[in-house]
Every structure is written in structure tokens, then in C-alpha cells.
């Protein structure tokens, strides 16, 4: 199993160093594994996820993606599209696009895919998420659980190598949470990718290969 992501001596401060969010983070994520990132609110889980997901920049330290830094991976937008699949806590679907269009939008920048193929893939993955009947609905017209499933479909459609999920079950009911968990597990089984989930949910911890505990911006333990 190769190392998909390596984090080395990562620091992140805000307000010119007055607020340390992450301190000396060292982490290795291997393909085919689920990692649960746990800790109390404000311990730095989302910050770490953002930096690994290239949505934020560290103050110090490096993140390696299959051995390459961000400067070496090429065009950032393409990297984010192909390497990372991000599931936000609050779905963050585009409100004026339907669920189908939201999922298709993640494929838009790939000029090798025709409009027909793009649509077929989007329909396929939404069907797998149990959203066959909601393809033409807008985010405001569906339930919270359906929105989150739509967001997950958008994250998975590009077959990214890494899924980063920030509290994916934090705002859904237990039934939907179960569906989300099953989907992620299924995805891992079929694609041997890596999943890092920031969570308070013990059920997610239970299905993870490794639990990474954080406190006050530091990793305090990593255990199986």
C-alpha cells in the first residue's frame, strides 16, 4: 500500500502567529484506508482537512501528494478535480443548479468528457445514492439528507484518489448517516482509495482503520 498523502512538520497560525491552529502535524495516509480524525470543536480538524485539500496554505511545513508538493502537481484546479474529493459539512450545493447539474459541474472542467457522458455519469452516481427521483430538483427542494448525498455524489464523480469529508454526517438524520457510511465503505472497497473523515461520530470511528485524535492543534494519538 503506497503513501497517498504525507504531512510533514505542518504548522498553521492565524493573525500573524497569535493564534496557532496546527502545531507540528506529521501524518501519513495510505491508499485503501479510512482514517477518522477526531477531537473537540476547535482542535484544528477542519483546518488540517483544508490544508490537505489544498483549500488553505500552511504557515510552515509540507504536504506531499504521492511524493509531490503542491508546486509540483501541475494546475491546481485540475489537481483538486482529479485528486481530491471534498465533502463539506453543510453540503454546499450551488442553489441555482439542480442536483444533476451540481454533480455535473464537478466534471465541467474535463474537456475529454462529452456532455452526454458527463450526464450519464452524473445520473449513474445519483442513482446509486438513491436520488433517481431528485435529479431535476434544486437544493432548496430536497431534504438535508438528500442534499448531503448529492454533495457526496459530486465529490465521488471524478473518482478522486482521496476523499476528505468534514463532518459528513453532522447535519443529517441517522438513516441518512447510515447511507453515507455505507456509500463511503462501498467506495473504498471498489476503488482502493483513501478516505479521511473529520468527525465526532463514534459509528464512523468504528468503521475506520485508524483513529487520529487531535487536541489543541496537535495530533495526540493514532491508533487502530
Amino acid at each position: 500500500m503506497s503513501n497517498i498523502i504525507e504531512v510533514k512538520h505542518l504548522y498553521k497560525d492565524y493573525d500573524n502567529g497569535l493564534i496557532p491552529a496546527l502545531k507540528d502535524i506529521n501524518l501519513t495516509l495510505k491508499e485503501g484506508k479510512i482514517y477518522a480524525l477526531m477531537g473537540s470543536s476547535g482542535c484544528g480538524k477542519s483546518t488540517l482537512l483544508n490544508i490537505i485539500g489544498s483549500l488553505d496554505t500552511p504557515t510552515k511545513g509540507d504536504v506531499f501528494y504521492e511524493g509531490k508538493t503542491l508546486d509540483e502537481v501541475g494546475k491546481l484546479s485540475l489537481f483538486r478535480r482529479d485528486f481530491i474529493g471534498y465533502v463539506f459539512q453543510f453540503h454546499h450545493l450551488i442553489p441555482v443548479l439542480t442536483l444533476l447539474e451540481n454533480v455535473e459541474s464537478a466534471l465541467l472542467s474535463d474537456r475529454n468528457i462529452s456532455a452526454k457522458e458527463r450526464k450519464e455519469r452524473a445520473v449513474g452516481i445519483l442513482n446509486k445514492m438513491g436520488l433517481k427521483h431528485r435529479l431535476k430538483s434544486y437544493a432548496s427542494e430536497v431534504s438535508g439528507g438528500e442534499r448531503q448525498r448529492g454533495a457526496i455524489a459530486r465529490a465521488l464523480i471524478n473518482n478522486p484518489k482521496v476523499i476528505l469529508a468534514d463532518e459528513p454526517t453532522g447535519n443529517v438524520d441517522s438513516k441518512t448517516a447510515q447511507v453515507i457510511l455505507e456509500t463511503l465503505k462501498e467506495y473504498l472497497k471498489t476503488s482502493a482509495k483513501c478516505i479521511l473523515i473529520a468527525t465526532h461520530d463514534e459509528e464512523i470511528a468504528a468503521i475506520s482503520d485508524t483513529i487520529i485524535s487531535m487536541k489543541d492543534g496537535e495530533i495526540i494519538s493514532e491508533h487502530l
Binding site: S77, R80, Y86, I94, A106, S109, R154, A155
Partner: peptide, 16 residues
Amino acid sequence: TKEIGILSAIGWSKMM
């Protein structure tokens, strides 16, 4: 602003 951030996160280029 939030929408722009999300689109960037899912792989939209600045030009798009």
C-alpha cells in the same frame, strides 16, 4: 463568495 469558494474547491478554474 461562498459559492465561488465551493466551485474552486470542486475543480473549477478561475477562468471558468
